[in-house]
């Protein structure tokens, strides 16, 4: 038993260690603050700021959209609004969507892009793919935390003359706040790190995207591009990008901890 713990911890520490030790040295101010125009892939200077910006431009709107959609659905799944058996059916659908590999969302968007004659990729479809990917994650996380809201609390809100929507938006939402924050950040983390869905939808670019129909670079796809280069020096830059991605994931988890703690001071047990 102890051996298996060692295997697990060892392999996971190995992963983190490899990225940190290979990535941190290649990191420099220049690589973080310049775009990859002018031969970043060829061993010349430049950096991957455009990929950082691109990733944020994809993941932030996607998370925002998925959050709005997710919270609406999660609140509506309560038995105040929806018959519990229908709600459970929707939960199963969402669980299936959660399990669907992200590449399927990529193919879905690619199919639509081919159908409307769009080639090469665009920010818009990247956002759509990530939104689809994040909706089930965010919705089900919020849903689980709403399920924990005590029935007595809702009764209290109704007793004060609240309507259903007021109860949902003002009371249930506040009580479920830590879960909502955790769910949204979980979704954001999945979105910003996912390569398969955006690989098929956003294309690539060495510049900052300026419109929704532009192609864009993103952190995960840039890693793939870098490791496929023949030059060893260029390949090593992939670790710097991966390091940044890892730091973002770490940051998300720290922020989650901080915010859930902060937002749970009002929670009624």
């Amino acid at each position: 038993m102890l051996a298996s713990v060692f295997i697990v911890m060892g392999s996971l520490i190995l992963i983190v260690g490899v990225i940190v030790f290979n990535g941190a040295p290649s990191l420099s101010l220049q690589i973080l603050t310049q775009t990859s125009e002018g031969g970043f892939y060829l061993g010349a200077g430049g950096g991957f700021l455009n990929a950082i910006v691109g990733s944020l431009l994809l993941a932030l709107p996607a998370t925002g959209l998925a959050f709005i959609i997710g919270i609406a659905i999660a609140l509506y799944l309560q038995k105040d609004f929806l018959n519990p058996s229908i709600a459970n059916f929707i939960r199963i659908c969402l669980d299936i969507l959660w399990g669907v590999p992200s590449v399927v969302y990529g193919v879905f968007c690619l199919t639509i892009m081919i159908a409307i004659g769009m080639t090469g990729g665009s920010v818009l479809f990247g956002i759509i793919a990530l939104t689809l990917l994040e909706i089930p994650i965010i919705t089900r996380s919020i849903d689980e935390s709403i399920k924990m809201v005590p029935a007595g609390l809702k009764e209290t809100a109704y007793s004060l003359g609240s309507t259903k929507v007021e109860t949902a938006m003002k009371v249930v939402r506040r009580q479920a706040m830590p879960g909502i924050i955790a769910g949204v950040l979980l979704g954001f983390g999945r979105g910003i790190g996912d390569a398969a869905s955006i690989l098929l939808t956003v294309g690539d670019s060495n510049y900052f995207p300026t419109s929704l129909s532009d192609q864009t670079a993103a952190l995960p796809t840039m890693i793939l591009n870098l490791v496929s280069m023949p030059d060893q020096v260029v390949q090593n830059k992939a670790y710097a990008v991966a390091f940044v991605l890892l730091m973002i994931v770490l940051l998300i988890s720290i922020i989650t901890r901080y915010l859930t703690k902060k937002s749970s001071k009002h929670i009624i047990k």
Binding site: P150, L153, E155, T156, S159, L160, G161, V171, R174, I268
Partner: peptide, 21 residues
């Protein structure tokens, strides 16, 4: 119904403050 409930305040067995200040 909310108007009816507004006329009849209910205090429950276990106090449930709302999750706010």
């Amino acid at each position: 119904v909310p108007d009816i409930r507004k006329k009849m305040g209910l205090i429950s067995q276990k106090p449930y403050p709302l999750p706010m200040s």
